[in-house]
Nucleic acid binder design. Structure first.
Lengths: 194, 194
DNA sequence: CACAAATTTAGGTCGGACCTAGTAAGATGG
DNA sequence: CCATCTTACTAGGTCCGACCTAAATTTGTG
């Protein structure tokens, strides 16, 4: 990686860290982009250049998050999409992956306190569905493939919310409880998609 | 209805009609609220008072749209939620209800051309899910009830998109094709929820 | 008719998204 | 190793949606 790219990345992370600190302290909507720029000691426009929307300052893992289910089914072409996503979920659960919603309680509280951020998160789940549907689709767009993508990402979204609920409540048995919920939710859907 | 209420409604519809005309002519993002106000011959603030967000100028049926599935299951307490929504869907399909996406091609094109409006529509589907989940939930929030609400509203959303796809393509056999797609989608889910 | 309540208006502020022109600093080729 | 090209960053804006307050206008009521 060239020095130029290194410096760019440093600037980006510098901004991202300054922003996260401010957001957790004063809430997403209580901080302006100008203040983020000031805290990171860069021009306002530099923030905008690195992060197209204010929400992008918070969800840096967006791309990994969106692509994950589609990758799961592509990397396990022999099993059904249902089995690939279910097995991928339980594997990621053991690793407490951020893709499932594992995060600090301050982060969860900060996002939940902002309508804007919750809407952005919703959109991320939706984009996930689109990616998964694209991975399943024969071009032309069978309705059943799209429905499968929708139902699987719905489960991932509900379980994500479950992780956040328990995180926010400071629950100790988080992983155990989420595993139970996941077993139920995937089990319900198995007769249709398995 | 009092004269005061009548005049308020007139003002509201006056604004809504002026807005829709402008949006179809020049695109949602190509029209400012100030222009809508000017066209409707009211103050800018009157537009804002009637329609909290610019998107609300377009989706006037929002409340009916959001409440519909929850009402279906509440009005048919003897059948399963799955059957109530499925049967309600086919009934509404025969009536070409706007709740399923039936609309003019210009309207569909106008909404699809705007990222903002598509996001607002997404949010309406999500709010639908929340309403339906609330109607199904035993307080405490069983994950299976939430999953059922999610899967059912996903189908309604996919079929809504199907209606719009066919509308936008100017298809003549719209209702027939949508009925087929609905049969497939509900049929897929029946082993899980029926 | 006088007064209360609801609606509309005027004229703002604030912040996010976006733009342009120009500067600074790292990369590249003669 | 210096001149030139490219990329990142900066400065200073514009635009518009969301929101606010105070006041004016219109309608309903005792």
């Amino acid at each position: 990686m060239s020095l130029r790219q290194q410096k760019k990345l440093e600037t980006r992370q510098n901004i991202s860290h300054a922003a996260t600190r401010l957001f957790i302290a004063r809430g997403f909507d209580g901080v302006t982009i100008a203040e983020v720029a000031e805290a990171a000691r860069v021009a306002k426009m530099t923030v905008t250049n690195h992060f197209g929307r204010k929400e992008d300052l918070v969800f840096d893992i967006r791309n990994d998050f969106v692509d994950w289910p589609a990758k799961l089914v592509q990397q396990a072409p022999s099993s059904t999409p249902f089995a690939a996503v279910r097995d991928g979920y339980f594997a990621a659960l053991d690793g407490r992956s951020a893709l499932l919603g594992f995060a600090g309680i301050e982060f969860v509280g900060m996002v939940r306190a902002s309508v804007t951020l919750m809407a952005a998160l919703t959109q991320m789940h939706l984009d996930r569905e689109q990616q998964l549907a694209a991975a399943l689709l024969t071009p032309g767009g069978d309705i059943l493939a799209r429905a499968t993508a929708a139902h699987l990402t719905s489960i991932l979204r509900l379980l994500f919310d479950e992780v956040w609920d328990l995180t926010y409540a400071g629950d100790e048995d988080l992983v155990t409880k989420v595993r139970e919920a996941a077993t139920k939710a995937f089990g319900q859907l198995e007769p249709a998609l398995g």
